[in-house]
Nucleic acid binder design. Structure first.
Lengths: 244, 244
DNA sequence: GCAAAAGTGTTCAAAATACACCCATGC
DNA sequence: GCATGGGTGTATTTTGAACACTTTTGC
């Protein structure tokens, strides 16, 4: 896991052998996306990640990394798994990156050692994100079903994140985190269908989500499509549940 | 987190700034217990923990630590949270321990730095455990509702483990892991009642757990108490589910 | 006029809950 | 004889699943 703002990390100010990787999900046009980045000199994409400074905890590091790339504060963010396979760090990939930046000998560099990485998943609203990377990195949303070639075990990290979200679905206010303030029933249903990998009966789904009273129907309809416009819904109150 | 087999760990062979702590649960006489240890020279109890060797992953470290103290292989063991508060490592507690072992100056010792710790929970069968510690440590089962004074954030780790198990209860074959081969309905029910902190209707509970067919009634009854002996039950097959 | 998206209710089956009485034994 | 632990069945409520037809508009 190599990061931008590379210059701000060094062997002295970060916790050794430890990184944080964030699987950032959003929903747009019926697809669930994950945010990836590619550095100019690299030929693979990676999750947004970074290191933990000596003065912060892992959550703090994850929030900092997310905020610096999406402009968002108060992100829904949870750690889900520590990846600790001794072979997960692709030392040669990292050496390659260092060599492309400067041609000196990097033997013994702190990036050329084993790293364990704590995976986080984040749920963000697509419309609110302002992507901002450093000049040498490209940020891009990828449909979770059409991922590009990824760095080391990042494919596995994304897969595990999805598995976790799937298991947590009954308890995570996922629609609230992923959707804009006003949304249609079909949009909400699509999220559940994609994550659970199955379809739901429109009527039963609607009845169920409305039954607990957290979602209310608005007077408005969506205007973009002029024919038979769908009714808009909104979440009654922000959730403040304590979710594991 | 300081461990026994102290001598086998050193700055060179372990992953830096990282430890593993295991919350080991068992069930006995209607109580849920957690396994704790106390070193001779210390005046607090701690979870069983240790460090991760360079050649192993975190699961490997946790299994090794558990096996060496309980004699059990194939333990039900899951990581549940990384504890990374910068202030969680009680440096002075560790320095104190080092000083009690030898009076040299330990400034700069690798144990006197910040550690992050990956929490594991384990479910074991009380009767199968053979407690075995090193000569300078005492191992003891404590009722989870009567815990002694604990090292640094170990209280928090246990609390979080319980919260996780509570949330995972529908998906963990908890009875299978905690109970001996033959058990009574009341024993099984007690486990759920303690963890969820509420009581269940005996008849409904029984109907529900029997309905999925994983638990079968035996011909035998419990003989220890001679009056109106309860029927014994057993699990049909070992579980091999993939649990997050 | 027909394809596409969205609105709307009823029926049936399954699951969860609530609840009470009898039996055997120790004391 | 009474307190304790344990055995057993039924009725009700709640929840989940299945299912079809009508409306609007673009093309």
């Amino acid at each position: 896991m190599i990061t931008n703002n590379f210059s701000s990390y060094n062997e002295e100010n970060i916790h050794p052998g430890f990184s944080v990787d964030c699987v950032i999900f959003s929903f747009n046009k019926g697809k669930i996306n994950v945010l990836l980045r590619k550095f100019e000199l690299e030929d693979y994409w990676s999750l947004l990640g970074g290191f933990m400074f000596n003065h912060e905890d892992a959550d703090g590091a994850a929030y900092r990394i997310l905020e610096s790339h999406t402009g968002l504060k108060n992100i829904f963010l949870k750690q889900f798994h520590l990846f600790s396979d001794p072979k997960r760090t692709d030392i040669e990939q990292n050496r390659d990156y260092l060599n492309k930046n400067s041609s000196i000998n990097h033997d013994g560099h702190w990036l050329l050692r084993r790293f364990i990485s704590l995976g986080y998943y984040a749920l963000v609203k697509y419309d609110e994100v302002q992507l901002s990377g450093s000049p040498d990195e490209t940020l891009k949303w990828y449909d979770i079903n059409k991922l590009p070639h990824l760095q080391s075990d990042h494919n596995d990290i994304i897969k595990t994140a999805l598995k976790t979200i799937k298991a947590m679905l009954p308890v995570i206010p996922i629609g609230y985190e992923l959707l804009p303030e006003k949304f249609t029933m079909t949009e909400l249903r699509k999220i559940y269908e994609i994550i659970l990998g199955k379809t739901f009966d429109r009527r039963n789904f609607q009845r169920k989500v409305l039954s607990d009273g957290r979602i209310v129907q608005l007077e408005e309809t969506k205007t973009s499509k002029t024919y038979n416009p769908p009714i808009l819904y909104t979440f009654k109150h922000p959730y403040k549940e304590d979710i594991i």
